[in-house]
């Protein structure tokens, strides 16, 4: 564990709490892509199967439980209490275009051709693109509630912080994880446009609006 990874995980945790807070305070899941949230459940469940057979640490154990539990809770809220505030008509990204390629790539690029390692690779690749339906929705509506942009910013910061974590681990432990690094760079890259608008507008106190 190093500071970058710890802060990254903290940002990830914070992003989820911000999202749940947004839903409860605005009594709405407006502007949130159900598809992205469903993909995150798939990401966490396929990656954390090792909860059953690998002990890492108490921290690792509880974080995994939190990510699986909270992502399922978010889906539950979106399908029950806040269902009327959800608009499937704008959440139209075709996730089969993500699931298909991620499956194929996971079958090709993995550290061992075993079910759990393939699922681990799949979860890494899927996570890297899981935000696309959300960014697509944002692009379609052209604007977002400020709290939703804080959620996305925290999520982007989480991924960005994993990059110095890998650099640090390379120099201190000599480990390199090409799959996680490649997917992580792609994932962080997807946030660049968002971050530009976030920094130049939201952090200056303006509303998040995309140029027409």
């Amino acid at each position: 564990m190093n500071l970058f990874r710890f802060l990254g995980d903290t940002a990830h945790l914070a992003s989820i709490l911000v999202l749940i807070h947004k839903m409860h305070t605005t009594k709405s899941c407006r502007g949130i892509s159900f598809k992205t949230q469903a993909l995150y459940v798939a990401v966490f469940v396929t990656r954390y199967l090792d909860l059953f057979y690998r002990w890492v640490s108490l921290y690792n154990f509880f974080m995994k439980l939190f990510f699986i539990g909270s992502s399922c809770y978010i889906l539950f809220l979106m399908k029950t209490k806040f269902r009327p505030t959800q608009d499937p008509a704008i959440d139209t990204f075709r996730i089969e275009y993500l699931l298909g390629p991620c499956t194929v790539i996971a079958l090709i690029f993995n550290y061992k051709f075993s079910p759990t390692e393939i699922l681990w690779s799949f979860s890494i690749f899927l996570e890297s693109v899981a935000i696309l339906p959300q960014l697509f929705l944002l692009q379609r509506t052209g604007e977002a509630e400020t709290i939703t942009t804080h959620y996305l910013a925290a999520l982007g910061i989480y991924r960005a912080l994993y990059i110095p974590n890998w650099i640090y681990r390379y120099f201190t432990e000599g480990v390199v994880d090409p799959i996680a690094i490649t997917a992580g760079l792609v994932q962080t890259g997807l946030y660049i446009d968002f971050f530009y608008v976030y920094v130049t507008k939201v952090l200056q106190g303006q509303k998040f609006e995309l140029p027409a």
């Binding site: 990874r5 995980d9 090792d50 890492v56 690792n60 550290y111 390692e117 681990r169 480990v175 994880d177």
Partner: peptide, 10 residues
Amino acid sequence: GKECSHHDEL
């Protein structure tokens, strides 16, 4: 391959 180092990451 070696036991992958990445498995301690979240």
